[in-house]
Every structure is written in C-alpha cells, then in structure tokens.
Write a protein that binds this DNA or RNA. Structure first.
Lengths: 345, 345
DNA sequence: CCTCTGGTTGGAATCGATTCCAACTCTTGC
DNA sequence: GCAAGAGTTGGAATCGATTCCAACCAGAGG
C-alpha cells in the first residue's frame, strides 16, 4: 500500500510538503506542487482514511438510524419503502459531500449507539422517526451528539425535519369541500403520535372554518393498521346519516376502508369517497386508485442531511426545525358531488 | 473524550496492559484485569475506531454497491425493493459481527471505488449485480480487493452468490405440467443477461424431458419491461393454437402479459395461465394474484456477507460460488386443466 | 544462596497522516 | 555588503491504539 512517505520520496520532498499539497494549503512553490501532484498521480496515492480521521478528529461519516427495515425478516411492511425513500434522499446529499453513510437499525439500545459515538465513528446522526421510541431520542439528545430527527417529535429542543401534517390535512378538507362534500368523516391514528394529532387538528380547524358539522361519530379512532381502517369504516357506514367522504389519515387504513365499503356491497367513489395519506406504492394499484397526500419522503431525507451539515459546520444554531409541505395526489377514490361548491377556490 | 491513557491512569497501569485487557489477551493477572475493567466501566471508555483501524490495518467495515436505488429520484422501480431485501440480509450478518456497512451506489466510476479501497475504508465489497456493468466487476476484480457479487456473472473467477435460475425454471415447467398444461410458452428476458439465458435453458430442458413441443412462436423475446410482456402476450394470443400457459421470466413482464389478456377480453387463469418470476411486492395484489417464483433475496444478502467473511478470514479459497434455490409461490393465475396429469409427481 | 523459569508489567516503536515551529533561501532596501 | 522580511521547506510532535521486547518479581530447584 502506498503511503504519504512513498509520495514524499518519489517527489524528493518531505511528508509535510506532500500533506500541504494534498490539502491545498498555501506555502508550496508551483514547481514543487506540480512535482508532488505528479508523484501522487503516478503512485495512485490516496490518503489512509483512518490516519486522517485520527489526526483530524473527524470521521467524515454520518449514521442513519432507521426502524426495523434492515432487521426484520418479513418484508411486506410499507415502512420499508417509507424509510428507503428518506434514506435515499439523505444518502445522496452525503455522497455529494464525500461523506460516508452508515445505516443502523433502531433495535440497538441507547448503550449501543452511545458506544459508537464514543468510538467516534460518526460525526452526526439522522434518526428516521417512525414509531421510534421517544426515550431513545431523548437519550441521544443528552449525549450532545449532532442529531437530526426525521418526523414529528414533541420535544422542541431536538433538531427535526418534518412534513406539514397540519396544513396537509387542511388541504384535504379544502379539496373535499371543493368537490362538493359537506358530511366528511375522519379515521384517526394513534393519539400518542404527534403526526396523528396534527392531522386531526388540521382537519378539525378547517372543517370549522367552513362551518361544517363535526359530529362525534364522524371522528373515528384508528391505529394506522388496515384492520382498524376496516372497522372504522364499518362503523361509519352504519351511522344513520353516513358521511359522503372519509379521510383516513394514512393509506393503510384507507385500504381497510376501501375493503369495508366493498364488503358492504357499496362502491367507492360512487357511494362514498375516500382519501388517504402517505401515497404508499400500492396506492395507485388499488381499486379504485386512491386519492391521497404524497409525503415528500425523498425531500425529507435531503433536508435532514442538509440540516445536519448546517449544524456540523456551525451555519445553524442547534434547536432547528424544518417543515416541508406535502401535495395532494388526485386519483379516482373521490367523486365530485352534484351540489356544486359555493367556494371561490 | 476518554482515551486509553485515561483508563491506564485511572487503573494505575500502563496503556499496554489496558490494551491487553481490551483485546482479551493473556498475560494479565486476574486482579489487574478486574481493576482495568472497572476503570473502563466507570469512564465509559470505548476505543477510538480510527486509531484501531490504523494500527490493525483493518477497517472492520464493508461496502455494499447497489444499483441506483439510493440515487434515482423516481421511486417506483421494483428494483428498489429487490435491492433493499438483499441489503437487509447482508446488513444483518455484518451487524452481528460488529462490522459496519456502507452503502454505495453504482454510479461511481471504477476510479471512484478504487480510490475508496486505496483509502482502506473497507475490508471488502458486496456488489449487488442487477444490470450492473460487467466491466465494473472485471475492473474491481483486478484490484484483488475481496469482492462478492450477488447475481449471475459469467466470469467464473469472481466470487458470487446467486439464485438457481436454471432449476427454478425447471420447477415452473414441472408445476405447470403437473396442473395438466402441455402447450406452454415462455416470455424471455434480454439474452445478454445470464439470468435470462439460465431461465430459458432450464425451461427448455425440462420441456424436452417431458417430451413437450417447443415451437418457435412459443419462445417469445422480451426485455424485462412491462411493455415487452404486454407485446409478447399479444403475439401469443394471436398464434393459431395459443398456449394454455405462459411463463414470463420476470414479474414485470407477467404484469404486462396479464394486462394484454385482459385487453383482449379474455380471463386469467380461465383462458390462459400465467407464471412470473421474482415475487415482487405487488405480485400478490394483482388481479388475479400472480403465481410466481420467489427469489430468496434476503437470504442471498446473508449468503453474500457470509461468503465475504469466509474469504476475509481465509476459510474459503477465492473463486467461490454459492447457489440458493427459489420457491414457487402458488396464487391464482394458474388454472389446473381438466385433462389430468399423467405424471407421478 | 543462587539461578532458572514462568507469569506480569511497562517502555518504546509503530501505524499514516497533520501541523507547529524552526531553518533555510532569496529578494529587497539601506 | 548586510539586515530584514517574505516565501519555502523539513523536522518533530501528535492523534490513540497495538505489540514487541526488556525488565521485573516470585517461587522452584539445585
């Protein structure tokens, strides 16, 4: 293996000089610089990464902690895709900066991660927060290690990148009302998840703004699972005056809702409209193709990496928060009602 | 940051002794060992990874090169899933060994990868070979760097882990014949891909073994795209004596074939049976759910990592080849024919 | 009582880069 | 002709671990 000493010998200079050339430092005469560069080229020299990391006290590497997706053996959880997109976004940004990316699963204990930091293996962490134990986030925060969380964390002192759940839910209401719907129900997610609460809050605020009714039976509980969506829709179909549109706050519950309508011998969207949230890959293959809110997953990943670099390089002071907006994807699960909208928009 | 010197001071011993304890080397008295372990515990000491890598001349890290999936912005290519599974398998094996995994995309030039190796950043590479440029494999091979390729590479001097394409195709024929089919067509992949050739060869051998006809019109070209599957199926439907079953050698072409049958006003499996290959996630959601061959993607990843470690640790001499068998997943796209099979199996 | 052996332990060199500081050369100006 | 200063360059220390070698000690055996 060729080292800096070999280059120095070949160019007839000292190692210090080679290092100076390597790092574009001033104080090397043009001729010497040229000679060194030539030697580097000829010997195909590349600095030993460990030697550099040791001396510079920087690993030039970041870690991405994702849930399960690289650990569990069963592979049909939509989460896999969800995470993959975010990772891709972060990965590409890091690659551009010539930083290395290491994937970690979230099954490690805090102690496991802490040991990696103490080993100085990474300069920072991106934690993809989907159902991740909040305690882990809190513990990681205490280490003072540069950390960016992707997702909705209640703690305002953690750096985070998130999608605009509140605004997106409002957009869904605006869209449905624009299509002439007035009796709109919601199927909620687990209330302990901030994302659920934000989507519900956005929904309710906008409904109130339109002066639309919010009966309690239209506010169905759910837990993000297909099954819970199925059950919630069944309850909604049995209400004396059923809604004309249902907003399931994630796609899996929307899938369950679709199935419930079908099993009840009715049609989506003819008898009832359904909107989801996430735009998971199967959404477009459903029957009917699902109208839903597309989360900018790739962009979330990119934003997380950018934020981390901003923090590492001191361009941003630490408790920072970035919010990206999502976009409504119109497919065929919503039917415009005959009663035309009374809205300007 | 706490270093080995701090531990040595705290325990009242030399750094050499701490290092010996750290690496479970003999020649340390039980009492001293205990004292050192206690100091390590109290100080939460972890060795600096770069210092170790530098001295040991081992990075304890491997690289996985995957195609595109972490680079392209469009996310609905099935390849993403394909790679994710393989990566998960390899990742878990590496994590068990406390090795770090770094993902690289295949867009780098050979020079880019070579520079990483020369930087000694990785101890070995797993290259996930789906459509990857063979030249890259050849170039990497010349560096002498430990390399394992996942997929079908023609070069027998490259370490590889692959699925048994030949045997799986034979299994498909056996299954279809067992269901009473005799007029079976195949939709091929690009002939420059070894996997295509192997699947075709397995198919033809088994057909011949059953004494079944192999008319040229039953041997349709394709290029793995949905569109090519659609077109091939259209051609097959217009043959004077159309096949009763069609084997598309990947799922995307099978999807195209399904669509072609539907567009021709016919039914799968009532009018014609279809078998795919891969078992991509949507396969189960298709109409009808697709009978296909499941590639053991996760297991391929695991096997690749195991093989790499075997090579690194000298348990296996270098040109090694591991073949895993795939399994047929029966769904609803194949119909048993009335004429019962004359076969024992 | 002295030597030899085996078990412990510390000292120093080493891995490959970076960087501070000192030394050197060459102008420039008096 | 010599001092001052700028521009180059090399030497040596350093990052944090590992490992060879030498030194030390205790107990066994002569």
């Amino acid at each position: 293996m060729v080292t800096i000493t070999d280059v120095a010998k070949a160019a007839g200079v000292s190692r210090s000089t080679v290092s100076r050339v390597l790092n574009n430092r001033p104080g090397v005469s043009p001729e010497t610089r040229k000679r060194v560069l030539q030697a580097i080229e000829e010997l195909q020299y590349q600095p030993h990464f460990a030697a550099q990391a040791l001396k510079r006290q920087r690993a030039e590497s970041i870690a991405i902690i994702v849930q399960n997706s690289f650990r569990e053996k069963t592979g049909d959880e939509p989460r896999g895709y969800y995470n993959t997109e975010i990772v891709r976004g972060a990965f590409n940004v890091c690659t551009e900066r010539r930083y290395t990316v290491t994937l970690l699963n979230d099954e490690g204990t805090f102690e496991f991660y802490a040991s990696l930091f103490r080993r100085r293996q990474f300069d920072g962490i991106v934690l993809v927060h989907v159902d991740v134990d909040l305690r882990l986030v809190e513990e990681l925060k205490t280490t003072g290690f540069p950390l960016v969380v992707v997702g909705s964390v209640p703690d305002p002192f953690v750096n985070s990148v998130d999608v605009d759940n509140y605004g997106s839910a409002q957009q869904v209401v605006r869209y449905l009302v624009g299509q002439g719907h007035r009796r709109i129900a919601i199927i909620n997610g687990p209330p302990q998840r901030l994302a659920s609460r934000d989507r519900r809050a956005g929904f309710r605020t906008m409904m109130r703004q339109f002066g639309l009714p919010l009966p309690e039976v239209y506010d169905q509980p759910g837990d993000f699972s297909t099954r819970s969506g199925y059950e919630a829709m069944n309850r909604l179909l049995n209400v004396p005056e059923p809604p004309t549109a249902v907003f399931a706050i994630n796609d899996r519950m929307a899938i369950g809702a679709l199935r419930a309508v079908h099993d009840a011998g009715k049609q989506v969207p003819d008898d009832i409209s359904v909107v989801g949230f996430d735009d998971i890959p199967v959404a477009q293959y459903l029957n009917p193709p699902l109208t839903t809110v597309r989360q900018p997953l790739y962009e979330l990943g990119e934003a997380a990496a950018h934020l981390l670099f901003d923090i590492l390089e001191g361009r941003v002071s630490s408790p920072a928060r970035v919010v990206l907006s999502a976009s409504l994807v119109e497919r065929s699960s919503v039917k415009p009602l005959a009663t035309s909208s009374m809205l300007s928009e």
